[in-house]
Amino acid sequence: MFVIPVGNLLLHWLLLLFFLQQVGAASLLLMKADDYCFWVYILASRSRSLYIGMTNNLRKRLATHRSGVPGSHTAKYNIHRLVYFEQFQYVTNAIAREKELKKWTRSQKIALIEKKNPTWEDLAEGIPLGPAYEKQIPCGNDNK
């Protein structure tokens, strides 16, 4: 889907448009800039192989990972357990955080996960992941 913000944040709009083109977005949705919601997330396998990603629809992205797309990293290593996530209003902040986490050592990533989720529980348990979930969840300000 293409998201066109109503407002004057041209840089955010261009980055968002680029991101949405990369994920194969096809529909047009008008939203105010304050309504964007992006997630940086970490998935893990039972053997604790890790995957870090960023999305504008966490539930839909989890469903994609869990569908086991052949040839994907998450399917190959059975990585589908959501063990950590952060929410962002601005795509630029989410992209920067994803890049930051990907540069971290494995031990730093594990410490981050265990700080908020010491038992590595699947944080998506009980959350509906089906196609009925289409709209983005409004987010607050990144500068909490």
Rank of each mutant, 00 (worst) to 15 (best):
T105M: 03
Y90H: 08
L30T: 07
Q136N: 11
S107A: 15
M54L: 07
N78F: 01
E98M: 06
L43Q: 11
A33S: 14
P70W: 10
A96V: 12
G53A: 04
T105A: 13
T105I: 07
N56W: 09
C139F: 07
P128W: 05
L15K: 05
V23D: 03
V23W: 02
W120R: 04
Y41P: 01
I113P: 02
N56F: 12
L10T: 07
Y41D: 00
H65P: 12
H65T: 08
L43F: 04
V69T: 13
G126S: 08
S72R: 14
K135A: 11
I137A: 03
L17D: 00
I110R: 03
Q21G: 05
K99A: 13
H73D: 05
E100R: 07
N143H: 13
K109T: 06
L43R: 02
K102D: 01
K109W: 03
Q108W: 09
L10I: 06
P138I: 07
P118N: 00
G126V: 06
Y41R: 01
L11R: 05
P138R: 09
L123Q: 03
G7M: 10
K99M: 11
Q21I: 10
L9E: 10
L15F: 14
F88H: 15
E98R: 15
N57G: 04
K103R: 13
R48C: 06
Q21W: 07
I4R: 11
K144N: 09
T119E: 06
Y133R: 13
W104F: 09
V6G: 04
F38T: 00
A63G: 04
Q108I: 05
G130A: 08
N8W: 00
E86K: 12
L16H: 01
T105R: 11
K76R: 14
V40N: 04
R46L: 08
I52G: 05
P138M: 12
G71C: 08
K32C: 03
K76F: 11
N78H: 14
L9D: 13
Q136I: 13
M54A: 15
K115W: 02
S47C: 04
E125K: 11
R97P: 04
S47M: 08
S49W: 12
I137S: 03
K76L: 15
L11M: 03
W39K: 09
V40F: 06
V69C: 03
I137C: 01
E134V: 06
K99Y: 04
N141S: 13
R46C: 02
P70F: 11
Q136Y: 08
E100N: 14
L10Q: 11
R66Y: 06
I127C: 14
R106N: 10
S107Q: 14
E86F: 09
L123M: 15
S67T: 04
I95N: 00
P131F: 06
A33V: 02
T74I: 01
Y84D: 00
L62T: 08
H65I: 10
R81C: 12
W120A: 02
E114M: 12
N93W: 15
V23Q: 15
K60D: 13
S67F: 12
S107M: 11
H65Y: 14
P131Y: 06
L112A: 07
S107K: 13
P118E: 04
V69N: 11
V83T: 05
G7D: 15
Q22C: 10
L17H: 08
H12L: 14
R66M: 09
L11S: 07
Q22R: 10
